[in-house]
Design a protein around this nucleic acid. Structure first.
Length: 138
RNA sequence: GAGAGUAGGCGCAGGUGGUUACAGACCAGUUAAGGCAGAUGGUCUGAGGAAAGUCCGGGCUCCCGAAAGACCAAACUUGCUGGGUAACGCCCAGUGCGGGUGACCGUGAGGAAAGUGCCACAGAAACAUACCGCCGAUGCAGCAAUUAGCCAUAAGCUGACUGCUUGCAGGUAAGGGUGCAAAGGUGUGGUAAGAGCGCACCAGCAGCGUCGAGAGGCGCUGGCUCGGUAAACCCCGGUUGGGAGCAAGGUCAAAGGAACACGGUUGGUCUUUUACCGAUUCCACUGCCUAAGAGCCGCUAGAGGCGUCUGGUAACAGGCGUCCCAGAUAGAUAACCGCCCUUAAAAGUGGUCAUGCCACUUCUAAGAACAGAACCCGGCUUAUGUCCUGCUCUCUCCC
RNA sequence: GCGGGCGUAGUUUAGUGGUAAAACCUUAGCCUUCCAAGCUAAUGAUGCGAGUUCGAUUCUCGCCGCCCGCU
């Protein structure tokens, strides 16, 4: 079980807000996926330079995980679920088209049944396929 | 030996090596005028006993302008004694009371003869009284017997004495019943009946003596007695500048300086000041937006850890030596493997009177639980796996 | 991080030291040809644990759960 490097994580509140506002939505029994493709938000002057940047070195996929207190009041459990999802993403990372911003919302049911690493991996794969985020490499 | 229980632990929260992964610090080299950031490689480090609940106490920072003194007011409730501590509502040692066969445990432990309130139902009565009952000594009335006087006798009248308990005035609080609680308790004398009315013991109160640092302990004497509730109001004692909290606060960001008189500034009043604020005048300056960007600082060396010695019953204090040990910000610790260690179970060998116990060997299993730092400390409370030690009670066996 | 409020029958509310109340719901009976309505009766609760008190839903303390606010 391994974590995600910092480049591939959503780090700012602004990003989360935009994904929740404009992103497409797909759901599965235990997870909800919100996805938003890359869109330059830097105004006029910087825009040209930014587009050049994208062309030269493509933006990495950024992934955020949202898990509320209602899922479980115990921090240990929330952290474990987060790590499991991170590990699943790490396995799927090379299949995802670059430039997407993804947010996974964990449903309260995720604490209940036999929700382990493989369950999350399977659900994520299905969600990403539905959202057409995957490229043809697999 | 078994079972049950009780108290404590400055006991542990596996160790170590390796492969991947994440976070931080430092170093190297790369891009580069230089700096920051990023990527690459290397070294080191990386959660807890409760990190939790947020129930208390502090440090730190800002705001209420600051400081000192007197009186009053207000707020708070921590309230047996002595000690410890930076401080505490915490800790240690002791006292009283209560519980337990015991080891031990609990204790929100000032005042009820300053005052007010409440004490349902029941009961006569809940703080002052008298329902049933007992007595009826004393006084009055009634009835009966005896006797004395008046009278010739009887009857009658008057008086004395005794009895009745019939009644009233009255005495009493022993007994009954009610209740959580009924006017100190038990015994005995005493009395008309009773009563601390007298006496003995016990309990309580006051005074004296004595022991103790003190709470209090012990002893003697005295008078004879006073319900409970203050986690009801309250009184007394004690304490106190208040508020906000690291999302404090600073900084990235220009927002300044001078003058003198007036007015004002602690909850209130009074006093003082070199303090501060307002407004006024003069000079100078000022385009707008974004600070939730978790930018950078605060931000991790501290009432610090470990070892040892000294003092103290202990909490704890002091000396010396040694070590540096998380600093994230959508928020870092995980997965797998080898060896060692610990515990448990099974098998074998040896010791022993022993199917038990101890030691060794082999193999297997487990290392679980509660749970994740968010400015930092000291406590309390709650959650939780395992190990060790002291003590107590009961049963059984041996001497 | 800081602060506030509430837990009472299955549900919504009373009760603030002395047998825990009401409405709706549920069940049974009566009524009706049947149902509804109506009438009668029954079942059923103080979140948990200590303490104060003769006695606690009420007072005190500690937990647990739920809801809300501020930054």
């Amino acid at each position: 079980m391994v974590g995600l490097p910092k480049v591939h994580r959503l780090q700012h509140r602004q990003d989360f807000r935009e994904v929740f506002r404009d992103g497409i939505r797909r759901t599965s029994p235990h997870l909800t996926l919100r996805a938003l493709p890359f869109k330059p938000r830097i105004p006029d002057k910087e825009a040209v330079k930014a587009i050049e940047l994208v062309e030269t070195l493509p933006l990495p996929t950024r992934i955020g995980i949202s898990i509320s207190l209602k899922v479980s009041k115990r921090a240990v459990i929330r952290n474990r679920i987060k790590r499991q999802i991170q590990a699943a993403f790490r396995q799927l990372l090379f299949q995802i088209s670059p430039g997407w911003r993804l947010v996974v919302v964990v449903q309260p049911a995720a604490t209940q049944e036999k929700c382990d690493y493989h369950q999350f991996l399977q659900e994520l794969e299905q969600l990403l396929a539905e959202a057409e985020v995957l490229n043809g490499h697999s």
